[in-house]
Design a protein around this nucleic acid. Sequence first.
DNA 1: CCATCATTTCGACATATTGGAAAGTAATGG
DNA 2: CCATTACTTTCCAATATGTCGAAATGATGG
Lengths: 140, 140
Amino acid sequence: MLETFETVSKAVADRSRARILKLLEGGELCVCQITTVLDLAPATVSKHLAMLKVAGLLQQRRDGKWVYYRLAERDLNHCARKFLALIGGCLNEDPAVEEDRRILAMVNAVPVQVLCDQGRAALGPNAEASKATTCCGGPV
Amino acid sequence: MLETFETVSKAVADRSRARILKLLEGGELCVCQITTVLDLAPATVSKHLAMLKVAGLLQQRRDGKWVYYRLAERDLNHCARKFLALIGGCLNEDPAVEEDRRILAMVNAVPVQVLCDQGRAALGPNAEASKATTCCGGPV
DNA sequence: CCATCATTTCGACATATTGGAAAGTAATGG
DNA sequence: CCATTACTTTCCAATATGTCGAAATGATGG
């Protein structure tokens, strides 16, 4: 039990992984979508996802070339279930999480294939700059 | 918010600190009591306690030479409150946590002064060995 | 004051963790 | 088959973490 608790809590106790969990509250995403939002190397994201999966927080599904991850719904340990519930009630107004959701909206507007080919460039020239300037042409 | 979440979750995501939080569910304890139960160096325990306090999970009170820690009740952030509630519902049947409670019962049977002087030796010769043998003379 | 003692801080060390580049896998489409 | 492609695994560097011993701190009792 303590081992499970430690695994799950350590999985959650990282900025990038917390962001991933919050992202997936909106539904399943493939690795390249998550990678684009987080703006990290694919290897890094893959490792984070593996860790969350080992902790029982995520589940996986393959669809052709793409691998989709989602929040665990069945067969998850007691501990993981509680942590997911906790996180669901946290961070909803966090600026970084909100920014991720904003980027995710753009990501969802682009076919996965294009995203894999172009990465963040597929989101248009404003996706990156919008962090600094929101005056003219920036979203919202 | 994410910063707070990270601080609190990292504070919780350690075996020793989780044990401390479970210990304190029974009420406040002074550092030497916690040290005796965990069987770690005072410096180590002190650092863990400081980390839990910074995260807003613990509060502190001085009584003469002794410093007592307890689970935070007031002035704790949203996040810390949720984590404390989660932990309260976890690990209650964990063997290590139960063993800690068993040792704590022995610790509580000894005056704090004696505990500080003698450490684990104050618990009697069986406190340590009981982990290996419970056949003859071992508690319960 | 001064000695004592519970606790904390500092310094050091071993280990763990995060992140990325490069090589390896697995599935798709010729 | 073979090339391509999305993802994973394997290294490796940089940093963070857990633990302890030694020194510092802060309160107590002469």
